[in-house]
């Protein structure tokens, strides 16, 4: 057999062996151990409320009012004052379309969007526009960010309290409960888990 052909046959056999080990056996092993030891996390940290699955604690959600005309794709969804509002998402919290806006730091459209968001949120929450925190007016990297800053959560307390008829104290306690500190106290950044916070809110009578 010519050397050229022999080298390629060796390469093909090596590739197939590697595919069986690394592409089949290895992920099956990891899946098996994960499902046995960490089934809840391996399956997406699904949270339930009243026996019903209502989301994943790692994947943010929209908390909008129902559309007036559900068939109109151009109608902009309006935030529901009864819920704590998440960050903006380039993909509308659709996990089939994760990703960021990718607009540049000097982009005119982004600058305008940020200013509009600031004004709208300040009016919605009844606060001074200058005090609206940075995470509230920007879109996240994943478009699925499950966290907001503590400052943004606190800003929304009065509005949610009024809409739901619950006390601000209760809400502040819930925020404290669902604030996740930096990992090990120093890795990353703290934030309030919006899915868990709103779930607890929906279960508060």
């Amino acid at each position: 057999m010519p050397t050229f052909l022999r080298t390629h046959l060796t390469a093909l056999r090596m590739l197939l062996v590697m595919t069986v080990i690394l592409g089949i056996a290895y992920p099956l092993l990891i899946t098996g151990v994960s499902q046995a030891a960490f089934a809840d996390k391996a399956n997406g940290s699904i949270v339930k409320s009243g026996g019903q699955e209502v989301g994943s604690s790692l994947i943010g959600q929209n908390f909008n009012l129902p559309k007036k005309n559900p068939d109109d794709p151009n109608e902009e969804a309006q935030p529901d004052p009864k819920w704590f509002q998440p960050r903006f998402s380039a993909g509308g919290y659709d996990p089939k379309a994760s990703g960021a806006s990718n607009l540049g730091p000097n982009d005119e459209k982004l600058t305008q969007t940020v200013q509009d968001r600031r004004a709208a949120i300040a009016a919605f929450d009844g606060v001074d526009p200058a005090s609206v925190p940075v995470d509230a007016v920007t879109a996240s990297g994943s478009g699925l960010d499950p966290h907001i800053s503590v400052a943004y959560a606190k800003e929304q307390v009065d509005r949610v309290a009024k809409a739901r008829g619950v006390s601000a104290d209760t809400l502040n306690q819930l925020i404290g409960k669902y604030t996740e500190d930096r990992s090990l106290g120093f890795l990353g950044q703290d934030g309030v888990n919006i899915v868990l916070l709103n779930k607890a809110l929906s279960e508060t009578k």
Partner: peptide, 20 residues
């Protein structure tokens, strides 16, 4: 720096809250 980042008050566009 940058008009959009200045308007937002920080470089959090495209960044996750849990990382900062």
């Amino acid at each position: 720096s940058g008009t959009a980042l200045q308007a937002a008050g920080g470089a959090m566009e495209g960044k996750e809250q849990r990382f900062g």
